[in-house]
């Protein structure tokens, strides 16, 4: 899933300080799963905005709405009868959501209520970790199903670097050295030959380096 975290409330309050009618829009996709942008969080943020306004003796009206997905025009359309009542919208979907809202409702001021972090999953309750860098050419099968592009701090294709110590990355003790994991796994499986294979420079054209990406599936295009 796409993992996000709430923006500091101070930053959100600063963003929407000049607006009196604010709509908070959540998303039932990834951000609901990672407890940051679902219906529950919409309610919490809306209440926080109301309380903050009351404290400052400001009158505001805060609406709440959660869409099935904000990354799909079909669902974004659902706001068309609601959005007119508001001057500002806070989207607490991932970075895609507020952009789809901005594109569909260009006359509205749309604000992001979360910071989108990465593609990953929950490794423990309340702890998420990155797994995919979206490079566009998946090669994790060379590396025991572990991705060095996303999980090595230097995206080494021929690791580990000299900074790997005790299974941890030189960058932080909180980061597992993925190359330590790859090496140990493949050596255990007797796949030393695979480890010794030279992996040539990656073609980054399929990654973000090729420019903003677009995917066309002819068979699905009407």
């Amino acid at each position: 899933m796409i993992v996000a975290e709430p923006k500091p409330i101070k930053e959100i309050l600063e963003m929407v300080r000049d607006y009196k009618k604010i709509l908070v829009v959540g998303c039932k996709g990834c951000v609901t799963v990672c407890n940051v942008g679902g219906a529950k969080e919409v309610g919490i943020l809306a209440s926080t905005l109301r309380i903050a306004a009351r404290k400052d003796n400001r009158e505001i009206e805060v609406g709440e709405h959660t869409l099935e997905r904000q990354c799909d025009p079909e669902y974004v359309d659902e706001l068309k009868d609601i959005i007119d009542k508001y001057d500002a919208v806070i989207s607490i979907a991932c970075g895609v959501g507020p952009q789809f809202l901005s594109e569909r409702y260009p006359e509205k001021r749309i604000f992001p209520g979360v910071n989108t972090k990465f593609m990953g999953g929950a490794v423990e309750h309340g702890i998420w970790a990155e797994r995919c860098a979206g490079c566009g050419t998946c090669v994790i099968h060379y590396f025991g199903g572990l991705c060095p592009i996303a999980r090595c701090s230097k995206s080494l294709m021929n690791g580990p670097c000299g900074g790997s110590a005790g299974g941890k990355c030189e960058v932080s003790k909180d980061i597992d050295c993925v190359w330590d994991m790859i090496v140990k796994k493949l050596m255990k499986e007797g796949r030393l030959d695979d480890l010794l294979k030279f992996r040539p420079p990656k073609d980054w054209t399929t990654a973000r380096d090729g420019g903003p990406r677009r995917l066309v599936r002819e068979e699905l295009v009407k």
Partner: peptide, 13 residues
């Protein structure tokens, strides 16, 4: 560096 057992192989590489 760790994993120690791999270091000579990495040198070979």
């Amino acid at each position: 560096g760790d994993p120690t057992e791999f270091r000579p192989y990495r040198l070979a590489k």
